[in-house]
């Protein structure tokens, strides 16, 4: 025993022998040690205010887009598509301005992805027309012969299940996504209006609600600058059929707004808003 202690038991002056013989000591040491790295890396991003500055234009999804996001999640699109443009010259030319933290600030959970079997979609909005998306979701290889993306023809045939929409908004509101009580109460009218199934009556109300410049997050009001014009909400029959709200309506509504919210103005350095010296608080 004694010889053992001299030999293997002491490691650089640490009585490892004691640790090894006591389950509580070993367990507590391990439990503490494995917590350190995570705490140092994950926690500060919540209090370092330059990690995720608010950027004008970023708004929560409309009810229809929110359902589109859910379908995007459901189908596992993020397993083939990233939504995170890195600051590289090739990505800049191919996809556009690098992604900002704030752009996914309301995404519970984030959809950055980790694999690009298909191209990045962070700035997809407006790149193609609805007609193209309809055809592409139905049969990707009919428009892009090289594609390996599955066909999603059931989306245009499936009526959107809206039984969860209200609850979704309520849950997100609990987590500081700035939906007002008014937004939540009017989810159904807004959804129909956006998909073009209500003769256009609800469109103005929808626009007032989602093109606004005042957002209340966690009791704090964020007011965008007067001159900032929010990107107009897309309102139309996304699936080409104005009589119904289908899953495809929702998905295309979502795809068509990706990356559209922030206006990347010439001469404004979004980087410094991001981590460095914020040019604007």
């Amino acid at each position: 025993m004694s010889e053992y202690k001299k030999g293997g038991g002491m490691i650089r002056g640490i009585p490892h022998d004691t640790i090894e013989q006591s389950l509580p000591i070993l367990a507590v040491f391990v439990a503490i040690l494995v917590a350190v790295g995570g705490i140092v890396e994950v926690v500060p991003s919540y209090y370092l205010d330059d990690a995720e500055p608010a950027v004008e234009g970023v708004r929560p999804y409309t009810p229809l887009e929110l359902e589109g996001y859910a379908i995007y999640r459901r189908e596992g699109c993020f397993l083939c598509h990233s939504q995170m443009i890195r600051p590289f010259r090739d990505e800049k030319e191919r996809y556009g301005h690098f992604s900002l933290a704030a752009e996914s600030g309301f995404d519970h959970n984030y959809q950055w992805g980790s694999k690009r079997t298909g191209p990045d979609l962070a700035r997809l909005g407006g790149k193609y027309t609805d007609a193209w998306h309809i055809q592409h979701m139905r049969a990707p290889r009919s428009v892009v012969p090289e594609s390996v993306m599955p066909n999603y023809m059931w989306l245009e045939e499936t009526a959107l299940d809206t039984s969860k929409t209200k609850r979704r908004m309520e849950v997100l509101a609990m987590m500081n996504v700035p939906y007002s009580a008014d937004d939540i109460a009017n989810w159904e009218a807004d959804m129909k209006a956006q998909a073009g199934v209500d003769d256009g009556d609800g469109e103005d109300a929808l626009r007032t609600r989602y093109e606004r410049k005042t957002w209340e997050i966690d009791g704090e009001v964020t007011q965008w600058t007067d001159s900032f014009e929010p990107t107009p909400i897309n309102v139309r029959a996304f699936d080409g059929d104005a009589t119904d709200v289908t899953e495809l309506d929702a998905l295309i509504a979502y795809l068509q707004m990706l990356g559209k919210s922030v206006h990347f103005e010439e001469g404004v350095d979004y980087y410094h808003d991001k981590f460095g010296q914020p040019y604007r608080k």
């Binding site: 600058t225 007067d226 001159s227 900032f228 103005e265 404004v268 350095d269 410094h272 981590f275 460095g276 010296q277 914020p278 040019y279 604007r280 608080k281």
Partner: peptide, 17 residues
């Protein structure tokens, strides 16, 4: 352009990193 809450002054480095 309406960014009236700027904290920067002329002469500040743009990339202080």
């Amino acid at each position: 352009k309406g960014h009236n809450e700027l904290t920067i002054k002329a002469g500040d480095l743009k990339y202080q990193d």
